[in-house]
C-alpha cells in the first residue's frame, strides 16, 4: 500500500496545487485571477516532474509555461476589452467543452494508464532508476542521426511557422 514518506507528502502537496489551481481557473470570473490560478496549477505540474526525477523538464515547465506562456496570457487578457469583468462562469457552449473534456479523460485513461497498469502492461513495480535518462542523454538523442534528429529539426521548422503565423495574425495590415 501507499507509505506516507516525504515523497508522498510532496505528491499530495503538488496535487493540491495542480488540481486546486485548475479548479480556480474554471471558476474564477476575473480572467486575470484565472491566469494566476493557472500559474499555481502549472507550478504543481513542475513539482510532479521533480518527483519523477526529470528536473530538466521541471525547469522547462517553469521557464516556458510560467515564464512565457502565462505572461503571454496576461498580455492577451489585457488586449481584450472588459474581459476582467466577466459576470458568468458558463456560456452557451459549456456542454461542448464538457464533452471534449470527457473524451480527453477517456483517451488518457485508455491510452496512457492501461498500457502501464492494465492486463499485460509494463510492470508497475519495475525500479524507476532503469528508466531515468540524464539531460546529456537527451541532448545526444536529439541530434543522433538514428534517433530524433528529424523531429528536432522539424520542431524548429514548426516554431518558425508558428512565429510567422503569430505575426501575420497579430499585425495590423492596414498600414
Amino acid at each position: 500500500m501507499i507509505e506516507l514518506g516525504p515523497q508522498s507528502v510532496a505528491f499530495l502537496f503538488f496535487s493540491v496545487f495542480a488540481l486546486g489551481g485548475a479548479l480556480g481557473v474554471v471558476t474564477s470570473r476575473n480572467l486575470m485571477h484565472g491566469a494566476l490560478y493557472l500559474i499555481l496549477s502549472l507550478f504543481g505540474v513542475a513539482g510532479f516532474f521533480v518527483l519523477l526525477s526529470a528536473p530538466f523538464l521541471a525547469a522547462v515547465q517553469v521557464l516556458v509555461y510560467i515564464g512565457a506562456i502565462a505572461i503571454l496570457f496576461i498580455f492577451a487578457v489585457m488586449l481584450t476589452r472588459g474581459m476582467t469583468r466577466l459576470t458568468e462562469t458558463l456560456n452557451r457552449q459549456w456542454w461542448l467543452s464538457a464533452v471534449v473534456s470527457l473524451m480527453l479523460l477517456a483517451v488518457l485513461l485508455v491510452g496512457v494508464i492501461l498500457p502501464v497498469w492494465g492486463e499485460g502492461g509494463t510492470n508497475p513495480n519495475m525500479p524507476s532508476t532503469d528508466l531515468v535518462a540524464t539531460t546529456v542523454d537527451l541532448g545526444v538523442a536529439l541530434v543522433d542521426g538514428d534517433q530524433y534528429v528529424l523531429p528536432f529539426l522539424v520542431s524548429s521548422l514548426l516554431l518558425t511557422a508558428a512565429m510567422i503565423g503569430a505575426i501575420v495574425v497579430a499585425r495590423d495590415d492596414t498600414e
Binding site: I39, P55, F56, V62, L63, I66, G67, A70, I74, T134
Partner: peptide, 25 residues
C-alpha cells in the same frame, strides 16, 4: 548543487517577472 543549476536560476528569474505584473495589475 542541482544538476540543472543554470536553468534553475533562469527559471526562478522568470518568476520575478510575474511579481512585477501582479503588483502593477
Amino acid at each position: 548543487d542541482l544538476s540543472i543549476g543554470v536553468l534553475y536560476f533562469v527559471a526562478i528569474g522568470s518568476i520575478g517577472t510575474l511579481a512585477f505584473m501582479m503588483a502593477g495589475w
